[in-house]
Design a protein around this nucleic acid. Sequence first.
DNA 1: CTTTAGAATGGAACATCATTCCAGATGTGT
DNA 2: ACACATCTGGAATGATGTTCCATTCTAAAG
Lengths: 221, 221
Amino acid sequence: MSDARNGERRTDALTRGRIVAAAIAILDAEGERALTFRALTARLSTGAGAIYWHVASKDDLLAAAADDVIARVTTEPSGEGDARAAIRAVSLGVFDAIDAHPWVGAQLTREPWQSAMVRIFESIGGRLTGLGVPPAAQFDCAATLVNYVLGVAGQNAANARLAAGADRAAFLATIADRWTQLDPTRFPFVHRVTAQLSDHDDRQQFLAGLDLILTGAAASS
Amino acid sequence: MSDARNGERRTDALTRGRIVAAAIAILDAEGERALTFRALTARLSTGAGAIYWHVASKDDLLAAAADDVIARVTTEPSGEGDARAAIRAVSLGVFDAIDAHPWVGAQLTREPWQSAMVRIFESIGGRLTGLGVPPAAQFDCAATLVNYVLGVAGQNAANARLAAGADRAAFLATIADRWTQLDPTRFPFVHRVTAQLSDHDDRQQFLAGLDLILTGAAASS
DNA sequence: CTTTAGAATGGAACATCATTCCAGATGTGT
DNA sequence: ACACATCTGGAATGATGTTCCATTCTAAAG
């Protein structure tokens, strides 16, 4: 080479694990849109090629990051206790994880049957026998619960994206405003329900829906 | 001007409606990733600036396209009849619409409480009184149903994206293969259920989950 | 009929992104 | 000392969403 190449080498080896950790840090701190390879190379002080040596693509990286977060929630301490309580605990764990890391919600809806989703599927489905759901109905039942959790996850992620910066009250007020301006003739239910929008708790509403499904599942046995 | 400018002007005026229609055509024919402003300008034989005069952004365009598809399904013929049947009909309409236009599923999970989602929310929530759900519980109940539909919608969209080209059987076989290779100790439920994966019907499973929720909702009244 | 302001158009230019490519540097086994 | 695979950093590359701007058209006003 002609010029004086610095020749410095990183003392801390670049690992897939460290890359995923850096990605999670960026996602948590600045949101989904901030995760670019530029931001990653800057934070890890390296080049894009080095990252691509450990990671296949950005999708791969996002899937690994989501899996990392979900894995922490679905590793169940022990399997005893009430099945209904256990399912509630796992679902709430996923809900809280997505509440803390909204980008996970968006990611889960993107990857259909990949590892993060399979973890949730297993954690929930494995408890259905204890809930009294007959084996033949367990597939449908688990799919229903997972789809519900994923729906809430996606909505939470979308809300977080829209409400970025502004506080929750102001965000809900904006939505309520938009709903109020709808035609009351064509949207009577929306109008009727707008009042409850401002002071509703997402977490509690999530639990209410979960109980609805669990009640239906138990009733069908 | 110096050179002979063609000076041609389109005889058919460019409308927001025509742009949305062109976008839907591209999305249906070639999938989500094919909708670019370059593809749009080519199809409409115009420039990017002309499109931006009628449309605020790509997100705006996607939201309008999704709203267009959903509006066709949620305009209810008439409100009589069994409430449960009506909710099933609307939900199935949304399911089928997303099955025919998978990109709508991805879009619905992206826009939190925008017009397309409000339509579904109204169509479902407006029937809850007829189902016997007490007013105080209707908000939670409608949210649960909508979240479930959205979860299924997102999964369908993700599946369509992954299975693009290959037929359904081959796609399911790939998933089943991946599930079989999981550790049977940590994923017993997934293993047990893999057999049912190949010959399950998405539409029927969607209905099963819907009935689960409706049963739970009716039971809580 | 002429003038004029705004609506609408088409395409070039721009900034940004994911990804690829490559010239090296580093370590390991022989 | 040598060769080889692993690993690194940064410079291209190609594609995308968006902005900018010089025009052209339309319709109302003078």
